[in-house]
Amino acid sequence: MSAPAAGKKYHRRLLLPGLSWISLTYVIPSILIVVYSLLTPQLGGGVVWDFTLDAWAEVFASGSRSNIGWQTVGTALVFGILATLVVSIPATVWARSVGRSEHRALAFGGVFGLLVAVNHLAGGYNNYSAVFARSVVWSLWATVICVVLALPLVVFISSRESRVAKNALLVAVMIPFWTSMLVRTFAIRFLLSNTGPLNNMIESLGFERQVFLNTRFAVVLGLVYTALPFMILPLYAAVERSDRAQLDAARDLGARPLRVFTEVFLPMVKPGLIVGSTMVFVLSVAQYLVPTLLGGGKTNMIANLLDLQFGEAFNWPLGAAVAALFSLVTILSLYLVVGRNEELDLA
């Protein structure tokens, strides 16, 4: 953008107040967190200024090794392989059909399977890497489910012919997007609670009451529920931007509907899928309210771990180490996914 002729001296005055405010609240505390992770915990919160690597050692090597039998290892293996197949097969088929590298699709499935296996195995350890793995796996599930739910919806909205209908349907997506996360999470908690409306309905139909709350199901459902609009909106933008004539062209050249979908539609909306998935994943993996209100336990996901260390456990250095590691992973994955796709400009 060209600068106004007399502009040189103005940009600093415009920039400085806001930039220093944000630096003070985001940059300096981030540096401080790294410093804290190298200090000694103080009883009752805070730190003692003695440098040590204890916190980092605990993050990577801790764990109350309880009973891990062959059964656990076996089921972990089975789950890992299943998860690998579930992700790799469709990914590979797609990669092959569009002539893209199959290795990346396979690797992606492999990493997912490995995470699922570690997650299962680490369930017996109850250590920090287990919390990390669980957070990532649950968030990936939420991302996949959001994609599946959002795709037909955005296609349906964008194929409405009246402008009014389109806008109404979009606003209907944006209202929950705009509503307090706390209220939305509470709504799910209320619905699923042991004496809640869902269980009453189940009972009145002659079935037994189920425990929904404090299960993996409840947490993943909550993640999907709170993050779904973040998938729908970018995906919708991508579908609206896309060139409909290319879909017609594929049909014109003899492609069946499924082929049109996988070979032309999906590649066309890929930027939207990437932005949406990134947003859902990043939002989910750092979720605090959902695992707290729907998961019940103390160490469900990373955010609970942080809350615990900065709250009841009063081990600030350990919490700082977890936070630093988590930020690093988040920033790295954002950089890897968004940074490589130059057409994606989040900012």
Binding site: A245, D248, D252, L253, R256, P267
Partner: peptide, 16 residues
């Protein structure tokens, strides 16, 4: 459309 033996040149080409 995909079973008809006709092909179209689209206005803005609609290249993939």
């Amino acid at each position: 459309a995909h079973k008809r033996n006709v092909n179209t040149i689209f206005q803005n080409y609609a290249l993939f």
